[in-house]
Amino acid sequence: MNELTNRLKVDFDASEITERKPGLTTLKVAKDKAETLIRELRDREGFTHLNFMTCIDYIEDGIFTLVYMLHNYEQKQTLGIHVDIGRDGEEMVSIHHLWAQAWTYQRELREAYGIRFPGSPRLDEDFVLEGWDQIPPMRREFDTQKFSEERFGHREGRQSEVPRDHMKVTLYPNRGGDEQ
């Protein structure tokens, strides 16, 4: 694996190469090199299995981190490719031509985060939400409780309790809130 990651560092400027545990390595690559790198891993390095594709919203940094998890059955190695893109209106190169299920992931990411993948089939079809008229719901700024209050009306008990604070009040009121 070291040999491969060293080569990816040279050929694709891969950075932040981290062995998370034996058999699982992650690295970061620039947006414009991601598709070529993924294609190379699939065709030449035996990473023929796309475990999944997902996104992490780092709202505080103004970025989405796309994660492509690839697996090599022969070497029993999994490689997580991280690609940072902007949060607002940014597009990403589609990989629907590399795996048959990739367009489904991209359709989901368009609906859940608002990321566009030009050329990806059926991208604008609803995935799990029919007639959704709010901001994409997996973005960190989407407030589920506020949405419920506005859409369905107020209902007692909908608010989340922080268990630690709740227990201070209900279980240990006479100990100054010390639940230890």
Binding site: R42, D43, G46, T48, E74, H97, W99, A100, W103
Partner: peptide
Amino acid sequence: TGHSASLDF
């Protein structure tokens, strides 16, 4: 051992 490039998606 490899990925079939012949399939049309």
